[in-house]
Nucleic acid binder design. Structure first.
Lengths: 345, 345
DNA sequence: TTTCAAATTGCAATCGATTGTTGAACTTTA
DNA sequence: TAAAGTTCAACAATCGATTGCAATTTGAAA
């Protein structure tokens, strides 16, 4: 590749017989430059097609106006929406985003975080991967003086800024809804319990059952059913039980719920009359399946915006100690056909 | 925010009573350092929790091992898949990605590109926004000596590396398929014709009709129907015609096709027997609508990988002139229920 | 005309890492 | 033992922009 020499402030200075400092000041619109020369400098800069070298500038200034984002998967609706939300508000403040995906791998997550530290980003926003078991790499971020914001899947033990969903409440409401629709034997597809979001959803499920004095049936709780395939498999298993459930809450994801729906469809089990199905995340497709799937909206784009605003807000309270702050967003139950039957037993 | 002083190579040097150059060489595993001191340096670096300042390093070295990506929307399946593909292969080579979204705005696209130039990325990968009308900002990228790779929506007039789909062929095959299924009056929902991808798809449509000696009916071609809402609206208009079409090719997107399907469903028009529907992009949801939607897969993840590999390949042919190269990926028609009727007229 | 302050501009250090050159210490060879 | 060659580390310049301080010019006031 041809590597043309880019024009620098020195080139401009030389051409105009002044020093680079004046050029720099003019470019930064400082008022310590004569208006006339400022105009001239700006004009010459445009002529020479000057582009500021952000690397040099950032090195000198000590900050990069860049935020690093680490998510398990970029191409997953929830995460790409959060990113879009973050981007939307950071862009307006002149910030850039460096986006990494951990591919749900703890190893890669560590590498991503380290790269971001090396890049001297001003802030790291992360949702941890499913198999993370220790968080020294995140502690490291804090130690390096970089603002750390966790969202959705957070490490509870780390005292950082957090933006989360109230998973327990959402899950609780979903189960209450099912019970009110007359379902009596509600199964739970749960996600990996090392992630707190899945633990919280389970708690919500148990609380709701308790509230209505319904028994907790162990074989109705299926571990690690968080993909479409695993959801389908779990469903087949559940429906083969001598006393099968009449509703399934796929607390892990809508994909899992989709697996449930497909199995029900294969077995000609009528949804919602014979089987109620509730998912989680409000993926776009849940609206267009037949029947449409009841699910929980996490306000993902709003969540992204909240994260960005939280960062800027903390930035402004300069000097003060970092107080661990948690912002909890209440998700919303979206009732659709897959759980809507007339409310009688 | 507390801003701790990070440890630098000077800190390590000072502690060990040597110069920073030796530290740098040790950290870069140069063989101009004594093995023993190298070990010592590495050990001390780890102790002091040293992290290389990539800014300084990049400034000195003149490249950043960073690729900038500009797409219309991050949270659109096709684009997020391409990004995931790029990320997958660049990550292995130690490259980073800076991702920007133009939000389909020409203005913002220009700003994104300029930011990336300022950031001294080594390469810019872009799919232009729908309302772009001139490409001086892209010419600028080339002038600054930055490798430019266009994909999918490309500016034909710019001689750059390009990775595209053979839209014309895909569209041609889709229409041939419809005709072979016995559809006789095929409408086209077309996208903004300033984007070449939509022009190509239209050409494919026209070519297929010509091949089968079928007339081109002007009122069957609807402009700018590239969202779900516009697709729905277009469909209502088409079906109100005295002589309505018996198939609709939503060449713009699957979202548009979904709009078609919903209107058909509202009007109780049977798909595929009374109306055939074909979309474009193979969005995940096309598989789970009822009926499932025939569409065209663009191999988006593979496309991303191809882009990344193309960059590395060009990098290696150092010194030579940049030859504009175009890689065309042949999309695949995915036949599903929405167009599958017994092949008789 | 002299004095002083304000407005501009220049000088030089700095951010942290890299790298070509130089020189000292050491090893090998004749 | 002396000459030649190696190895290793120090020195200093460099990447491009920023910024505190010093110096100069300008203009106004005395």
């Amino acid at each position: 590749m041809k590597q043309k020499k880019r024009t620098t402030i020195y080139d401009i200075a030389e051409k105009l017989n002044i020093t680079a400092s004046s050029v720099s000041r003019a470019l930064n619109n400082s008022n310590h430059v004569n208006e006339a020369t400022k105009k001239l400098i700006l004009k010459t800069a445009a002529e020479l097609n000057y582009k500021r070298n952000t690397l040099a500038s950032n090195l000198r200034k000590g900050h990069t106006k860049t935020i690093g984002v680490v998510v398990p998967r970029i191409n997953q609706n929830f995460f790409s929406n959060v990113i879009a939300g973050i981007e939307d508000t950071t862009y307006q403040k002149g910030y850039n985003l460096i986006i990494c995906q951990s591919n749900e791998s703890h190893e890669k997550e560590i590498k991503c975080v380290n790269t971001l530290i090396n890049q001297h980003v001003d802030c790291i926003v992360i949702s941890v991967s499913v198999d993370s078991y220790e968080y020294s790499h995140l502690q490291n971020v804090i130690d390096q003086g970089i603002q750390l914001i966790q969202f959705d899947r957070v490490a509870d033990e780390l005292e950082t800024l957090k933006v989360i969903n109230d998973n327990e409440q959402a899950s609780f409401e979903a189960i209450c809804h099912l019970i009110e629709q007359g379902y009596k034997k509600i199964a739970l597809l749960e996600g990996p319990q090392n992630l707190n979001i899945f633990r919280q959803r389970k708690t919500g499920y148990l609380n709701a059952l308790r509230k209505y004095d319904m028994p907790v049936i162990d074989e109705f709780i299926i571990e690690n059913a968080w993909t479409k395939e695993l959801g389908a498999e779990a469903t087949r298993k559940l429906l083969r039980l001598p006393n099968p459930p009449d509703a399934i809450f796929a607390s892990t994801s809508d994909f899992s719920a989709l697996g449930v729906l497909e199995v029900a469809s294969d077995l000609s089990i009528k949804v919602p009359s014979e089987l109620g199905i509730c998912g989680y995340s409000n993926e776009p497709f849940t609206e267009i399946t037949s029947p449409s799937i009841t699910t929980i909206d996490q306000f993902s784009i709003y969540m992204g915006k909240t994260i960005a605003n939280l960062y800027f807000q903390e930035m402004e309270n300069n000097e003060t100690i970092v107080v661990p702050k948690i912002i909890s967003i209440k998700p919303k139950l979206i009732v659709r056909s897959s759980t809507s039957r007339s409310p009688k037993s």
